[in-house]
Design a protein around this nucleic acid. Structure first.
Lengths: 139, 139
DNA sequence: TTCTTCTTTAGAAGAATTCTAATCTATTGA
DNA sequence: TCAATAGATTAGAATTCTTCTAAAGAAGAA
């Protein structure tokens, strides 16, 4: 991690009112230093271990949620057995590879959702999520 | 359950190559005798109990999956901590009330999804799921 | 510093789901 | 009708993912 990366990530955390602890900086680096990512808690934990930073699983979960609440991450619900966190927090949609359990972004501008019917009485939209589930047919 | 209901449900199970056992008939009745439903395993278990039919939770899960594989149910993924099963197996979308954890159908014809980008190489669409998450703002 | 608040952690606990292997039931066909 | 057998159900254990607990450690303010 270069000096400027460090400063940038530290600012990102401070702006979100999260103390830039060793663990948070390590996680922020894994999450934000390689383009948009979609990652599970377990996977992030492994990556931290591999990177030589010992972080407990509880801390991974704590921080994934804190990052999400702070708007630094967004949770994507595609699999009822596991949570995925997306580093792209702008509104957008996803391809989900059913066999591999991997996600790919679909830019909001690339896909149109129109004619949403009248909302149920007394409600407002929190988000509109489109998941295009794909698989690789065996031939 | 009237005689004709029974015959109808039994046929539904037989057509799916599932033996019409006491438990399956009871579940089928709870699921299909009151319009479209969105239900969790726990909830279906409670309803069976209340209806006076003792069915183990393992059987509930076994059957929800078998029904799903047979095309009699469809699983809807909206909450990473729980699975919902939908008795409406035609393609359609959903409103999800975040506070209540309840689902409401949106007919496929009522909502338009257009301009899906080119699929990832070598894949084909399994389904396109739109979830409109709504909540009731406190005023 | 030093006090306060926030953070991390190991391990226990919890919740949803799946597994196991024993028992039971439906179906088949002699 | 009645085995034989393939399939279904079950209690409870086990698994998996996630959250909680409460104690120890680190960061920020004065």
């Amino acid at each position: 991690m270069t000096q400027s990366d460090f400063v940038e990530l530290e600012k990102k955390l401070r702006d979100a009112e999260l103390r830039p602890t060793k663990q948070r900086l390590a996680l922020a680096q894994l999450l934000y230093s390689q383009g948009n990512r979609h990652i599970t808690a377990e996977r992030l934990h492994s990556e931290a271990m591999e990177a030589g930073v010992a972080i407990s699983l509880a801390t991974i979960y704590n921080n994934l949620h804190q990052f999400t609440t702070a708007g630094l991450l967004r949770e994507v619900v595609v699999d009822s057995s596991r949570s995925y966190f997306d580093t792209n927090v702008a509104p957008h949609h996803h391809f989900f590879h059913e066999e591999q359990g991997t996600l790919e972004d679909i830019a909001k501008s690339d896909l149109t959702v129109a004619n949403i019917p009248p909302l149920p009485e007394g409600t407002e939209i929190s988000s509109v999520d489109v998941i295009v589930r794909v698989n690789s047919p065996r031939r």
